[in-house]
Design a protein around this nucleic acid. Structure first.
Lengths: 210, 210
DNA sequence: ATTAAATTGTTATTTTATTAACAAGGATAA
DNA sequence: TTATCCTTGTTAATAAAATAACAATTTAAT
């Protein structure tokens, strides 16, 4: 398969979620403009994304939802699934656990890590919490490939180095501190304050021009 | 000021945070390549962003950090600041409260909302939790312009309609359900599962090609 | 049977974002 | 003083993403 654009990958994940929803409601086929409406985008964009993954709908009948879901799964997921670690079992870490567990995703939260003795060895939403010192062992034992960092800002770079050393292949960083990782580790960073400030900026802007 | 690109706005918010950090460490000036290193981007990008907001550094001395911080503030913030509501005081809502409170930002979390009787009328991290029925009153009383939705997925659209009706001007939606709002309301959506699946996709891809 | 309407797949165009290129000026060193 | 090296600001080029345009084809309507 040719290289998928970044944004297309993101949208495919989103499409899949709405599509699963549709399936759950007994819907079998869907038009590009229906998908588009569910995601504030244009039908062209949807058709283009679907074209890029090589799926083809039926003229005037739209896309077979199950087939499309399956195909997106083939693209995004691995056959065996991947195991995920959450670093930092604070509010955000726990939010992610409740949020991700029980989704039919191929991503399984295999372990949590913290330094707080009160949290270590407890189970949160079905996820065992280990001390951060056990990171390397646990990552290997549980075959964890992805880590989500939700710790306070200070320690971020040190933690990311531990993760890389432990053999993690992808990191999702929710702390406000950007980190550096070697090329072979995929890094995605997201900063909630930035998102909020962005909203604030555009609210301000709209107030001025309206 | 001419229109700032979306991405520039995001980066300015991020620059400001690292710059404040630098200030706290007693640093007074900074070069474009230093900012770039802190954010995994190129010095050109930094210079371009700074050019776009009309600030000018000193040749061979870099940018005056305090001046730059102040200018970014003028652009992003309003003089009086803006008030923010958090809808849904679950783990994510509480994470946001701890995360945002006490930052020197001009964004103040003025109220939380929930439907759970146990949470209503309690105070979380200094933020009063109201019943969702009190939304409209409280938004007006507290002059709230921005809302962050952290409720479970099902109710999202209904909540967004309540928010719009209450006069909210910007929404940051953390639920996995996309919502529709009128044009005068700025909407930013972020979906944690999508981010995670994106990481998973690229980890998979790297494993194949390496 | 013919026409009109709907919907896909794809190429072309436009817009947005990033990167490269480089002139200009000031600091430092010889 | 003169030459060299940095570092900025800006324009030009490239790349990525989104949108528009439209041919093709099936269904439905007349």
């Amino acid at each position: 398969m040719k290289k998928l654009p970044d944004k297309t990958v993101e949208r495919l994940s989103q499409y899949r979620r709405s599509l699963l929803n549709c399936l759950a409601n007994g819907k079998k086929h869907i038009f590009s403009h229906e998908i588009a409406n569910l995601h504030h985008i244009t039908p062209v964009q949807v058709r283009r994304d679907i074209m890029l993954i090589g799926y083809t709908g039926t003229l005037r009948k739209g896309y077979d939802i199950q087939e499309l879901v399956d195909l997106i799964g083939e693209i995004i997921d691995t056959d065996e699934g991947q195991n995920v670690a959450i670093i930092g079992i604070g509010n955000l870490g726990r939010a992610l656990i409740t949020y991700l567990q029980g989704k039919r995703s191929k991503l399984r939260i295999a372990a949590g890590f913290d330094i707080n003795k009160d949290k270590v060895d407890r189970v949160y939403g079905g996820v065992q919490c280990y001390h951060i010192d056990q990171l390397e062992d646990t990552v290997q034992k549980e075959n964890i490939t992805i880590a989500i960092i939700t710790t306070p800002a200070d320690e971020t770079q040190k933690i990311s180095e531990m993760l890389v050393k432990a053999g993690i292949r992808g990191i999702l960083n929710y702390t406000p501190t950007a980190i550096n990782v070697p090329d072979h580790v995929y890094l995605e960073e997201y900063d909630m304050i930035t998102s909020l400030e962005k909203v604030a900026f555009f609210v301000k802007k709209n107030s001025l021009t309206v």
